[in-house]
Design a binder for these strands. Structure first.
Length: 489
RNA sequence: GGCGACGUACCCAAGUGGCUAAGGGAGAGGUCUGCAAAACCUUUAUGCGGCGGUUCGAAUCCGCCCGUCGCCUCCA
């Protein structure tokens, strides 16, 4: 597909035309979770956003390699390279091995992401699986004079890297002027950050290194693993805006100092999920886990809710807002269901370069959708284009002229592709049907009985059947072609 | 204190110089219906936090003010 994509690059603070290093390939790295706890809605927003970005890049024809790490060591509880390792901390609390903590919450993470309809990254490298690469990187930085050893710790010397601060727009002097108090006197500059940490006695997660037993600093893994799988310079690096500083700034410093090359061409940062206007975060304790949210809301509805705002805008989470989104999404599902009742087969190929303008102007709506998505992945605007199309389709469906099977089929494919395959906001075909179940037959039997009752003007019985079915989540609707049902829950 | 972002209808939310300010939810009226539901039609911001300025023209650019948030310390 011939389309130009523009994206907002945090590094230049402007929208830029996207030009990958290789014409048809895109390498993208997104900072993954630290797996010491269940994921919350903020994680959901971040990974849904990047999932859609990757899906869209693939849709327009790029071969994408998507790498997203799992942090399972080195992430400390406190500021300025102090405090305990978060994983180890949790392990001690539960009296289990740190790797059990990792395994538990990594599975939990993938399970939540699967439910949100997020396609798994192509590579999910773990920090503990790349200790060698991290030590090699640290060694190179020491050899080149960018890092120094102090009491078994290795620190990056930010004074040796004049570009430190270029991503976040900060100067080391400003940082020092802040309230931050540095207690590590062994650092040459207060802003120096740990690449490798010495393991004190009693520290469980430890690996031998040229500087003694220790473990990698948090920032190091992303540099080591992204460059290993995507090369010294790659196209896109994504993550939460809260990681822009210091995490991503440190990644740039380490990577560029080591390789002597430019690290990342486009930096993408998603904004935060707030709750009552305040950032949802583990440390504030005001977060809603995805597992809890799923008890109230359908995961795909949550995904739709997330995509109804732009990835760079903050999103305030409330049950009321998600429910509103859910009703909107129902409209999309209703249309699909009606179309499917016209034809039972679907999934025909559709030529996006040659779309019909009649009876529904798919050419125009696709153009609007594509323009929105190409403009810094503007999913809310793209969704608006789809809803405008729905209005036309519904108009046609409620008009006396029936829609041809061919038209219905084309529209189904259109929706499946744009709303399903790219945005991921409608359940896939196999989830929607093909279920080995007697449930449809049973419901249809009840609908038949109710039809008989209605014919005999026994509306009491007919209404009872309808309301009892509703109680167990089956909604009955009488249309002019008969009675349809849908399942809500 | 430093850096950055945002403030659009009852709610959510696009739009960043120029036709009538997208879309969703909610509300109101109507059509259809045994009644519902769904759907359709009509409708709800001479207005985009406030005040100035630039311009033929601004929600959109500039300045000031008010308010909210993020980062500067772990967080997607």
């Amino acid at each position: 597909m011939n389309t130009e994509i523009f994206l907002y690059n945090s590094l230049t603070r402007r929208k830029e035309k996207f030009t990958p290093i290789q014409p048809d390939r895109v390498g993208i790295y997104v900072c993954g979770p630290t797996v010491y706890n269940h994921s919350h809605i903020g994680h959901g927003k971040s990974y849904v956003s990047f999932d859609v970005i990757v899906r869209f890049l693939r849709f327009v024809g790029y071969k994408v390699l998507y790498v997203q790490n799992i942090t399972d060591v080195g992430h400390l509880t406190d500021n300025a390279d102090e405090g305990d390792d978060k994983i180890e901390n949790e392990a001690k609390k539960e009296k289990i091995n740190p790797m059990e903590v990792v395994e538990t919450f990594m599975r939990s993470y993938f399970d939540d992401m699967d439910r949100l309809g997020i396609r798994r990254p192509d590579i999910s490298p773990r920090a503990t699986g790349h200790i060698m690469e991290q030590i090699e990187l640290a060694k190179r930085l020491v050899e080149k004079g960018y890092a120094y050893v102090a009491d078994g710790n290795v620190y990056f010397n930010i004074a040796k890297f004049p570009e430190y601060g270029k991503l976040s727009g900060r100067k080391p002097e400003d940082l020092m002027a802040g309230a931050r108090v540095d207690i590590r006197s062994e650092k040459k500059n207060p802003g120096d950050f740990a690449i490798w940490k010495k393991a004190e006695a009693g520290h469980i997660m430890r690996w031998p290194s040229p500087w003694g037993d220790g473990f990698p600093g948090w920032h190091l893994e992303c540099s080591a693993m992204s460059m290993k799988y995507l090369g010294d310079t790659f196209d896109i690096h994504g993550g939460g805006i809260d990681n822009q500083f210091p995490h991503h700034e440190c990644e740039i410093a380490q990577s560029e100092a080591a390789s002597g090359k430019s690290f990342v061409r486009y930096w993408l940062h998603n904004n935060m999920v707030t709750s009552n206007g305040l950032k949802m975060s583990k440390s504030l304790g005001n977060f809603v886990t995805l597992k809890d949210a799923f008890k109230k809301h359908d995961p795909i509805t949550l995904r739709f809710f997330i995509l109804q705002s732009h990835y760079r805008s903050p999103l305030d989470y409330s049950d009321q807002s998600v429910e509103g989104a859910g009703k909107g999404l129902e409209r999309l599902k209703n249309v699909l269901r009606q179309l499917r009742s016209i034809v039972d087969k679907s999934g025909t190929e559709i030529d996006f370069d040659n779309l019909p303008e009649e009876p529904v102007n798919l050419r125009r709506y696709f153009s609007e959708w594509l323009t929105a998505m190409s403009d810094d992945f503007n999913s809310p605007s793209a969704i608006a284009a789809l809803f405008e199309m729905l209005k036309d389709v519904n108009s046609l469906l409620s008009s006396p002229n029936p829609m041809s099977k061919e038209t219905a089929c084309t529209i189904i494919s259109f929706i499946n592709k744009l709303a399903g395959e790219v945005l991921g906001i409608i359940p896939s075909e196999d989830q929607a049907g093909n279920r080995e179940s007697i449930e449809p037959d049973l419901v249809n039997l009840l609908i038949q009985l109710r039809a008989d009752a209605r014919r005999n003007k026994n509306f009491k019985l007919a209404d009872d059947i309808r309301s009892e079915l509703q109680k167990i989540g089956v909604i009955i609707e009488d249309n002019k072609d008969g009675t349809a049902y849908r399942i809500v829950r």
